[in-house]
Simulated scan of single mutants.
Amino acid sequence: MSARQVSDLEAYLADRGISFGPVAPDAAADRDDAAFDARAAEDSEQPRFVRGFHDILITIGVVVVLIGLWGLGGPFVTLPVILGLAEILVRRQRLALPSVALTVALVHWVGTTSLLFVSEHDDAWKPMVFALAYLSAFPIPLGLFYWRYRVPLALAGLMVSVALICVVAILLAFERSLGIDLANDDHFMLLALTVLVGALGLFATAMRYDVSDPQRVTARSDTAFWLHLAAAPALLYSLIGLVFVSNGRGTWWDGQAGLGQAIAAILIVALFMLVGLVIDRRAFVTSGLLSLGGAIWTMLNQTGASLDNYVFVAFAAVGVTVLFIGIFWQKLRRIVMNLLPEVITARLHAAP
């Protein structure tokens, strides 16, 4: 038992009239508690796509074979091999990491093949029409692949592709109905808002999968993992895009981002980290690191701090933030979860 479990048991027995004398602090118990937190942090978000070095070895072979065949025969030679390997490695042997590699290979095949066909109309089609035609090639192959092999990444990819198609279709409808060109910077806010709505829909779908498996013991949790991995950066950068619009669309890289813009970005990143702690998904922490570094660099630059190497200071600050959150993930999560009502925490992955 960990030290925290012992203290909970003592409180339970004390409520029933059974008390214990004071116990001296035990360094070994503290170490056990720290080890328990470390194991809990490892187990709290563990998508099942690496089960051993055998999976890694087979995946290396899959990647090397597909690269070689792609160079020799192109996409039309590669597709039968992808499906043949999926029958052996995914459907029969149920290997986890090779299933991810083969799903990624299928996505690459669909993307490359679709581009071959739609590029013939590159000069005639507007960007939104081109994007819609390109994205429309993804749902059916991914849906069939998931139906046959039940790979969570394929299901997540299907949902992401549908979300992207919906976003592009809405943007195309705006262009046609309002008579505008969204490639023009003057309409960037409309673009960012539409992407934000699509990202919120993707996040809601991911949360539905998460709350349906709070113990994270089924493939639904893996699907939620991949969906969060796509939703987190989409949400973040649509919000950051709106911050850029409010300040003349200055970015971190052109040196035109203002101090208020940097502070807003830091607040958004902090909010995402808080969301990540609540739902126990680290994608919401990692997705904001680039923006956090850019915001810190901008703040140092705008405040006239006497530092010669802003970039290295920003790297150090981001690294310290990542290490702090990573090391104390479970303790921070317990603090946050204790502040929330039970009606919310009961549906989420439990804090140890």
Score class of each variant (00 low, 15 high):
1 M>T: 06
2 S>R: 15
3 A>L: 15
4 R>C: 01
5 Q>I: 08
6 V>P: 00
10 E>G: 05
12 Y>I: 13
12 Y>G: 07
13 L>P: 01
14 A>E: 12
14 A>F: 08
17 G>W: 05
18 I>R: 09
20 F>C: 00
22 P>Q: 01
24 A>H: 09
30 D>V: 02
31 R>A: 14
32 D>H: 07
32 D>V: 11
34 A>P: 00
35 A>P: 01
39 R>T: 11
39 R>Y: 12
42 E>K: 15
44 S>R: 11
47 P>S: 05
49 F>H: 07
51 R>D: 06
53 F>D: 00
54 H>P: 00
58 I>C: 06
59 T>F: 02
60 I>M: 09
65 V>F: 01
67 I>N: 00
71 G>P: 00
71 G>V: 00
73 G>R: 03
75 P>M: 05
76 F>A: 01
83 L>C: 08
85 L>V: 04
86 A>T: 08
88 I>Y: 10
90 V>P: 04
91 R>P: 03
91 R>E: 07
93 Q>A: 14
93 Q>K: 15
95 L>Q: 07
96 A>T: 06
101 A>S: 09
101 A>G: 10
107 V>Q: 09
115 L>W: 11
117 F>V: 13
120 E>G: 10
123 D>R: 05
123 D>I: 05
124 A>Y: 06
124 A>S: 13
128 M>F: 11
128 M>C: 07
131 A>K: 09
147 W>M: 10
150 R>M: 07
150 R>Y: 06
154 A>D: 01
155 L>W: 09
156 A>W: 03
162 V>N: 03
162 V>A: 12
164 L>E: 03
166 C>N: 08
170 I>S: 13
172 L>M: 11
173 A>F: 05
175 E>R: 13
175 E>N: 11
180 I>D: 07
186 D>S: 05
192 A>P: 03
193 L>C: 12
194 T>D: 13
196 L>Q: 10
198 G>R: 11
199 A>L: 11
204 A>K: 02
211 V>W: 02
213 D>W: 15
214 P>M: 08
223 T>Y: 03
223 T>G: 05
225 F>R: 12
229 L>K: 11
230 A>G: 05
231 A>E: 13
237 Y>N: 10
237 Y>H: 12
238 S>G: 14
239 L>P: 02
243 V>Q: 04
243 V>R: 04
246 S>R: 10
247 N>W: 05
251 T>M: 07
253 W>V: 13
254 D>N: 15
256 Q>W: 02
258 G>K: 05
259 L>R: 15
262 A>T: 04
262 A>F: 04
263 I>P: 02
264 A>R: 09
264 A>E: 08
268 I>R: 12
269 V>P: 03
284 F>K: 13
286 T>N: 01
286 T>G: 03
286 T>Y: 12
286 T>L: 09
286 T>V: 10
290 L>V: 15
290 L>Y: 12
291 S>K: 02
292 L>A: 14
298 T>I: 01
298 T>W: 00
300 L>K: 01
301 N>H: 06
301 N>P: 00
301 N>R: 10
302 Q>I: 08
304 G>L: 14
305 A>G: 06
308 D>S: 12
309 N>C: 03
312 F>W: 10
312 F>H: 03
312 F>T: 11
317 A>M: 09
319 G>M: 09
320 V>N: 00
324 F>H: 00
324 F>I: 07
333 R>A: 08
334 R>D: 04
334 R>I: 12
340 L>H: 07
341 P>C: 13
342 E>Y: 06
342 E>D: 06
343 V>N: 14
345 T>A: 14
346 A>Y: 13
351 A>L: 10
